[in-house]
Design a protein around this nucleic acid. Structure first.
Length: 412
DNA sequence: AACGGATCCAACCGCCTTCCA
DNA sequence: TTGGAAGGCGGTTGGATCCGT
């Protein structure tokens, strides 16, 4: 038994929507809200099927849809995410402010795809870019190491690195069977990254991890990853409501953590600027409490900024057993949302996880973000990229789960 | 001005998942 | 637990427009 076509009724209109149809749909949804699409056409006196109405609304009429030319930053994001995620347009669209999946898909198919393919062809003319001379590519996959983006004097990978300036825009490529994180942990390379690169993508950014959670995503075919994914599903179901107002605690140890561990001195002042900006915005969303865990340094700037904005109490939780401390805090205070390194354990408690990410200053005053908790827990799927570059404004919006964006925008 | 190929993108199609009674 | 309805998603199409000849 085949499925019933979605618009098989005789007399229903197809094709381009008229202004009058748009107006009818718009006013009906404004009055009655979204949903009930099947019965909507009859109620709104539209000769369309429900699905057509829903698509018209979702892709065109819905408020707050951003249309028009994509910015260079958006293009970069699409290319980078597509390299890792493939044609998962809805996921990619979530990383772009107010863009629909359909628009992103069209933009890729009509513009970016060709550009990337041209890059691939260019790379095929220069095989060295894609593949170092090696008898065994499985042992020596090629990756782009994000640490090279952190600061020019970070030489943690320089022993194995080659730079192909003029072709790979702002990355260096290393060949090694393992990579060393900014915290000195040696771990396997992401084979996904290697695969993508071997397909010729030259502008990929991948990441050395700095948290338990993102490390999970770099250990392909690992039981730990499977466990994480199933927990993710659990968390999704247990925390349907993600209104920004439900956040009454933010714990973020990455900001200062990486600032210290990377010895990226050039980014320190920039971090402070960023932290101040974040703090001023956080102050607007009525946080009840800030938990600090791990490290020291740049975070004090966030603390002082928050204090000056007369906001949340700050708990210094930099003692050794961060997880235990956080859980204790959760139990005692009834915190409903936490973010930070301990996300996995906290997710098991059914908490909402938010994270501003692991921030590193990049070129053009943008920030390299290792989305170490929130995005991964909510959208975790094998091969998800954990690293993206954002402007500050994008960062503040994108680091939150999609459902929070409109509320956040309202608060900001 | 006319033609035709290239490009763009809104909309359609159908499969899949989620929801809910 | 089950099955139908509703919604999500990605592939594809076709009409409108652009642009070179």
């Amino acid at each position: 038994m085949g499925r019933t076509p979605w618009c098989d009724q005789k007399g229903l209109r197809k094709g381009a929507w008229t202004a009058e149809e748009d107006q009818r749909l718009l006013s009906y949804v404004k009055q009655h809200g979204e949903g009930g699409w099947r019965s909507l056409p009859h109620k709104a006196d539209l000769l369309r099927c429900g699905k057509s109405c829903r698509l018209r609304w979702a892709n065109y009429l819905r408020p707050n849809i951003r249309r028009g030319e994509f910015s260079p930053e958006e293009e970069e994001t699409i290319i980078r995410l597509h390299a890792n995620l493939g044609n998962r347009w809805s996921t990619i669209a979530r990383h772009l402010y107010r863009r629909t999946d359909n628009e992103v898909k069209n933009y890729w198919n009509t513009r970016l795809k060709r550009r990337v393919e041209a890059e691939v062809r260019k790379c095929k003319d220069h095989p060295k870019i894609l593949r170092k001379t090696s008898n065994n590519d499985d042992i020596n996959p090629i990756i782009i190491n994000s640490s090279s983006l952190v600061s020019s004097d970070d030489d943690s990978t320089s022993a194995n690195s080659d730079t192909f300036s003029g072709v790979t825009k702002d990355c260096s490529i290393t060949s090694s069977s393992t990579t060393t994180t900014s915290h000195g942990v040696t771990e396997p390379l992401s084979t996904t990254s290697a695969d993508v690169l071997n397909q010729g993508v030259t502008n990929l950014v991948t990441t050395n991890t700095s948290s338990t959670i993102s490390q999970c995503f770099h250990k392909n075919n690992n039981a730990w990853e499977t466990k994480l994914l199933s927990e993710s599903s659990h968390v999704n179901k247990s925390t349907n409501s993600t209104s920004i107002t439900s956040i009454n605690c933010i714990c973020d140890d990455h900001l200062d953590h990486d600032q210290v561990s990377r010895s990226a001195n050039s980014t320190s002042s920039a971090h402070r600027v960023l932290l101040n900006k974040i703090a001023s915005k956080l102050a607007l969303i009525n946080l009840d409490k800030i938990i600090r865990s791990g490290g020291s340094g740049g975070y004090s700037s966030l603390e002082s900024s928050l204090a000056s904005n007369s906001t949340p109490s700050v708990k210094d939780n930099s003692s050794t057993d961060v997880v235990a401390d956080l859980l204790e805090e959760v139990v005692q205070t009834g915190i409903s949302a936490v973010c930070g390194t301990s996300g996995e354990e906290l997710c098991q408690q059914g908490l909402e996880i938010f994270d501003f990410g692991d921030l590193t200053l990049e070129a053009n005053n943008n920030f390299l973000v290792e989305k170490t908790t929130a995005a991964n827990y909510y959208n975790a799927k094998e091969g998800d990229d954990n690293t993206t570059t954002y402007s500050l404004d994008q960062l503040l919006l994108t680091s939150f789960p999609k459902d929070c964006l409109e509320d956040l925008i309202g608060h900001l």
